[in-house]
Every structure is written in structure tokens, then in C-alpha cells.
Amino acid sequence: MRIGSPKETYAADESLFRTRTQWVWFGILLLSLALYPFVANLYWLFLACLICINIISATGLNILTGYTGQVSLGQAAFMGVGAYTVAWLDNNATTPFILNLLAAGVMTTLVGLVAGLPSLRVKGLYLAIATIAASFILQFVFINWESVTRGTRGINIQPPQLFGMEFDNPDTFYWLVVPVTVLMVILAANLFRTRVGRAFIAVRDRDISASVLGINLPLYKLMSFAIASFYAGIAGGFYAYFFGSINPESFPLLMSIFFLAAIIVGGLGTILGSILGAVFMTLTPELLRYGVDVLEPFVQDASALLSPVRTLVFGLLIVGFLLFEPHGLAEIWRRVRRFFHLWPFRN
């Protein structure tokens, strides 16, 4: 059991991790992330990379939807913008990897700002609808702007290079994507230690009285949208490098629903929730695949069921969590932790 944690300065009390235990756990997390490649096989490294990409995107969406209360169904399409930016630069310029990735983030932010403009006029759900429209308009652009996207044939991307090394495999790519993911998550967490993050939450909880307290609603809505788009752009850039080829079908509406499901399952409005949700939702299809393999001898054409079952399960998870566990896995995690904090005095 832990009792209190005295501090001598406000700076210490304002820090990201307030207790020594939290620092220790963070250290253990970093250490295990560093050791993971030495114990995991290629398949698990592949999954780890995919999870990281999804964590980046889910974190961005959670800033917008979970913290600012603006639903977006455009996260996948925005990832597409990032991916195509990387693909175009890779094929038409000799700019280095890091620059391409940043360009993907910036480009997506700009596109996101334009798509987010309607949210200035109206509240809540209209943004969701505007992002559906933006998704389809972007999809149209991916298919029809042939000179840049090569249309439905898709476009190939060379593996990223840094310091003369080529990251063409999950076991090397891991060292690229994990540090960036850790950084992006910490950046997001920092946001909510400051006035900017508080303003986002204020917009979500009571957008009118927030304005009377001096918060410029359109500015913060748009800012939140821009940040979410930036995260989508970075995730999309990684996606393009990771898979080595993209086409307009790589970023369907279902993928946006996937990310929405991830933050709902993980926990809306918590950083931890974005991580847990992305891990859970990336592993769920793998679990389903495993289940289908088991069923294969008994059910005819079991593998054909994989995609529909996945769609069904995504939907059920969204509905189920919103109905029965609206604060998601993060809340379950908190309950477990509290139990051990108080143990053995209360149970």
C-alpha cells in the first residue's frame, strides 16, 4: 500500500509521473521495449510495428474525439494523405526519411485544417458528418489524381534509410517506429498538462461556458483537429514505409471505424486508453484469425468468414463498450491498480 507522496516544489508536483513508482514502471516499460526484439520472432515484431503505427493514429484521434469531443470518421483518409505524401516524395525527390515523415505530418495537418473548417460553424456531430464527406472526397482524389497517386494501380515506396542503414524488415523497422511512437505519446500526454489541453477538455465538457471563460472555441477546435491530423499523417507515413506499397483501397472508411473503436475500447479521453485500445484492436483480428484456423476443419470456407467476423466484432466492441464500460480498458486498468494499492486493507 502506498500513502501520499510529499514534494517540495510545484514543478515536481506538476511532473508527468508524480511518484517514484511511476518512474520505475516507465523505466521498466522502456527496457522491455528495448529487449523485445531479442526475444520476439518476425511475426511478433511485425505486429509490434503495426501496433505502434496504430497507437500514433489512435492517440491523435483520441485528442480530437476523446479530449475535445469532436467525432471524426476521417482518420483513415488522413492517414492516406500522409502515406501518399511520403510515397510521392519517395518517388520524386531525394529528401531523407525523417523529412518525408515530417512533410507527411505537415501536409495532413493542412488538409485536416481545410476539412475541419465546417466545425467552426457548428457543434459536435456535424464535424463527424463533414469528415465522412472529406473521406470520400479524399478517396476520390487518391483514385483520380493519377499523376501523383497512380490511381488504382497504387504506388510503391522504398524502405526508409537512416545513417546508411536500410529499415526494410520488421526487426529493423521496429527501432525506427518505437522511439517515434514513445515520443508522440509523451508529446500528447504533455499537451494535457498545459492550458492547451485543458482548453480542449473545456470545449468538450461545456463549450459555451468555456467561451465565457476566455477560450476561443473555433481556434481550439481547429487546433485539436490539426493535431489529430498531424498524428494521422505521421502514422500514414509510417504505414507507407512499412508496407512498401499503398493504393486507394488501403484507407477505407472501415479503417476509420477501426480507430474509433480503438479509442472507445481503450478509453476516451485518456492517453493510456489510446495505447491499450490500439494494442487490443490490432491483436483482435489476429485472435480471430487464430479462431478461424481452429474452425477450419469443421466449418466449410472458414477463412472466408474472417473479414465479415472482423467487421462484426469491431461493431460489437464499439456498442458493447459504450453501453457497458464507457470509460474503456483504461478504467478497468485503473480499478485493478486501485485494488492493489489498497491491498490488503480493502478488497
Binding site: L187, A188, N190, L191, R193, T194, R195, V196, G197, R198, A199, L213, G214, I215, M223, I227
Partner: peptide
């Protein structure tokens, strides 16, 4: 909020 200036980029770092 009205008396502070931090922007999003500074906030994130």
C-alpha cells in the same frame, strides 16, 4: 487561461 500564452507546440514539448 486568459493570462497565459503557451501554444500547442510549446505545450507538447
Amino acid at each position: 487561461h486568459v493570462r497565459t500564452r503557451t501554444g500547442p507546440l510549446a505545450a507538447m514539448f
